[in-house]
Simulated assay, not measured.
Amino acid sequence: MTSPVHYKTAWEDPGTRRAWRRTAMFRCAAALGCVPAFFAWLFAVVMTPVWLLVLWMPVLFAGIWYALLAVAGAASLTGIRRVLRVYPWQAGLAEVRSKKNGSTQFLVPDPERPEKTVGLEYGGGIGTGRHFWVRAVQSGQVTAAWFAGDPRYVGVVATPGPRNLLRIAQREATDWRMSPRKRGVSPDARARARAAGARVGEN
Rank of each mutant, 00 (worst) to 15 (best):
T2R: 15
P4Q: 06
V5K: 02
H6T: 04
Y7D: 04
K8Y: 05
T9F: 06
A10W: 02
W11Y: 09
P14E: 08
G15Y: 03
T16G: 05
T16Y: 01
R17I: 07
A19S: 08
R22F: 05
R27M: 11
A29R: 08
V35N: 05
A37F: 12
F38K: 01
F38C: 09
A40P: 04
F43N: 07
A44L: 15
V45N: 03
V46D: 08
M47E: 13
M47G: 10
P49G: 07
V50F: 13
L52D: 07
L52C: 10
L53F: 12
L53Y: 11
L55F: 15
M57H: 04
M57I: 15
M57P: 00
P58R: 09
P58S: 10
F61I: 14
A62V: 15
A62K: 07
A62R: 09
A67I: 07
A70K: 02
V71H: 03
G73I: 00
A75P: 04
A75W: 14
A75S: 12
S76D: 15
I80L: 11
I80K: 00
R85V: 00
V86G: 00
Y87W: 11
W89N: 01
G92I: 10
L93D: 03
A94Y: 02
V96T: 12
V96Q: 02
V96G: 00
R97S: 14
S98H: 07
K99E: 15
K100W: 07
K100F: 03
N101T: 10
N101I: 10
N101Q: 08
G102N: 07
S103H: 06
Q105H: 05
D110Y: 04
D110K: 04
D110H: 15
E112W: 06
R113W: 06
E115R: 14
E115V: 10
K116T: 04
K116Y: 12
T117A: 13
V118D: 01
Y122R: 02
G123E: 03
G125N: 14
G125R: 14
G129Q: 13
R130K: 11
F132L: 08
R135K: 15
R135E: 12
R135I: 05
A136M: 09
V137K: 00
Q138M: 08
G140V: 02
G140N: 12
Q141Y: 02
Q141P: 00
Q141I: 03
A144S: 14
G149V: 08
P151H: 05
R152C: 06
Y153P: 00
V154S: 04
V156K: 01
T159S: 14
P160H: 06
R163H: 13
R163E: 13
R163N: 08
N164M: 09
L166C: 05
D175A: 11
W176Q: 11
W176Y: 04
R177Q: 11
R183Y: 07
S186V: 09
P187S: 10
R194T: 02
R194W: 06
A196S: 10
A198G: 05
A198Q: 05
A198N: 05
R199Q: 12
V200F: 01
G201D: 14
G201H: 08
E202K: 13
E202D: 12
N203H: 12
N203A: 13
